[in-house]
Simulated assay, not measured.
Amino acid sequence: MDDQTEKSIINMLRTSGCVFAEEEARLLIFEARTLEELKKMVEIRSGGMPMEYVIGYTEFCGLRIEIDPDVFVPRRRSEFLVHQAEYLTCIGDIVVDLCCGSGAVGASLAATLERVDLYSVDIDPAAVRCAGRNIATYRGRVFEGDLYTALPPSLKGSVNIVVANTPYVPTNAIKLLPREARLYEPMIALDGGIEGLDLQRRVAKEAPLWLAPGGHLLVETSERQASQTVEIFCSNGLITKVARDYELDATVVIGTNPDN
């Protein structure tokens, strides 16, 4: 690839509004197998499609996570959710990843800890298919359905870790999201209801039924919503604390099922 072609791609991307045009141009050039494929990828990206959909993957916790169109793209802030769960997870634990999307959170936990018994769940068939590929290496299982109802009933009372990156954008705030998210990502993975807390309430309500004594529920939320998420956890009998990473702008609420 000559320098002039690269400069032309950079200019096209920059004109279309890509903030990191140079980095994206290099990545597209690297991923394209032919010149025709490169032209098509540049055209699609310039049209506004998220880069992750164009190249078919994203980097998350050091892993290459496959991303299909219409599947939520995991954000870097969600790596904080993974790291918080790592501190609490032991080899052999049963781990449930609710609202798993691409399966990135569960896959990252399994890759780091090894030999966890991973169950991933999503209501969206496209996400289930994508997650199935991403967690296959770790012998994880993925289920299509509505939160806990998709899980084998035999897991009740024995789950050590539940991680959930539930949709938590308030319905009226969807219009404020970046254009790429609004136009291309599935609304079911973004819209958390009027307050952004609908799914959090449902996850927390049933958590004590599924968690083992001393098991943990970890939910990503926003700093603004954290106090409400804490109230939801406490009202369902969970011993609760908040973890915050200001660099990533990440907030995780952690609830522990009492031992007795």
Rank of each mutant, 00 (worst) to 15 (best):
I29Q: 05
V54D: 07
Y138H: 07
I67G: 03
G192Q: 02
D146C: 01
G255V: 02
S8T: 12
F233W: 13
T89I: 06
Y138K: 03
L88H: 14
A21M: 08
E24K: 08
W210H: 06
G237L: 08
Y119W: 09
L238C: 07
E223K: 14
I94E: 07
K175R: 13
L218F: 03
L147D: 05
S16M: 08
N260L: 14
C18Q: 14
H216G: 09
P167Y: 06
L211F: 01
K39T: 11
M12V: 14
A207I: 04
Y57R: 12
A226R: 12
E22I: 10
Q225T: 10
T89Y: 03
E86V: 14
V159I: 08
G132D: 02
L209E: 15
D245Q: 08
E144L: 09
L81D: 00
N165A: 01
D259L: 15
S154G: 11
D68I: 09
K156P: 01
A243G: 06
G47W: 09
L27K: 08
A104S: 01
R129T: 15
V105K: 02
T58I: 04
V163G: 00
R182L: 03
R76L: 13
T171V: 09
I194C: 14
N236V: 05
T149M: 11
K156Q: 10
I135F: 02
E195Y: 13
G101E: 00
A111S: 12
P178T: 06
L209N: 15
I188F: 10
L199Y: 08
S16T: 10
A250T: 04
N165Y: 01
Y184G: 06
E86P: 09
C100E: 00
R45T: 04
G214R: 15
L176K: 13
F20D: 15
E23G: 12
M12K: 14
E185F: 01
E37G: 08
V82R: 01
M41N: 10
E43S: 12
A204N: 04
A212L: 08
A204D: 01
V253R: 07
P186Q: 05
Q200I: 14
L248S: 04
S222G: 04
M187L: 15
N165P: 00
I29E: 05
Y119V: 03
V230A: 05
S108V: 06
C100H: 01
E223Q: 11
K39P: 04
T171Y: 10
F233A: 06
E247W: 13
T166Q: 05
V162S: 02
V42R: 06
W210F: 07
E114R: 14
L35D: 15
K7G: 10
I94C: 08
L190W: 03
